[in-house]
């Protein structure tokens, strides 16, 4: 077992983990943050996307020990403390950018990463950026619309 410490959604956490523990397992099973999902085992679906030190990462393709000392943000950290949805989350609701909700946390984390590096993306840029997020319900149409609307709302 190895001791690791990190900040998750603003809160410091310290824990003992086996080195083979994935970051996503640590988040879901140790911290109970079950908003981050696992949809594949070949690092392609993006349902597990989180932010590690401000950068988008697949938490299923990273060991918890690799996140030692890092700042992690998950879907649970995206709304205001009072529960008010963030701009991107609200845009997803306004534009019906989700159906079953399983890919949604990863989509929101990707959208946030995109808008941080490109505040005014075109439809084509949004689609290209979401290459690593699979959704089986929406056909992506309303996800693209939601991201575009969030960009406009953030001005």
């Amino acid at each position: 077992m190895v001791e690791i410490s990190m900040t998750v959604n603003g809160k410091p956490v310290t824990a003992q983990v086996e080195p083979r523990t994935l970051l996503v397992t640590f988040l879901r099973e140790h911290l109970g943050l079950t908003g981050t999902h696992v949809g594949c085992d070949t690092s392609q679906c993006g349902a597990c996307n989180v932010h590690v030190n401000g950068m988008l990462a697949k938490s299923c393709t990273m060991l918890a020990v690799e996140a030692d000392g890092a700042e992690i943000v998950t879907i649970e950290g995206m709304a205001a403390p009072d529960g008010t949805l963030g701009v991107i989350q609200q845009a997803f609701q306004d534009h019906h950018g989700l159906q079953c909700g399983f890919c949604t946390p990863g989509m929101v984390m990707s959208a946030a990463a995109l808008l941080r590096e490109n505040p005014d993306p075109s439809e084509e840029e949004i689609r290209a950026f979401l290459e690593g997020n699979l959704c089986r319900c929406t056909g992506y149409h309303n996800i693209v619309k939601a991201v575009r609307a969030a960009a406009e709302a953030m001005g």
């Binding site: 079950t34 908003g35 989700l98 399983f102």
Partner: peptide
Amino acid sequence: IRRREDLRFLTGSGRYTDDIN
């Protein structure tokens, strides 16, 4: 009408079977 179920799915508060232990 906007979907009420979105509130839990957008905040990571859905309860899928794998979330149950």
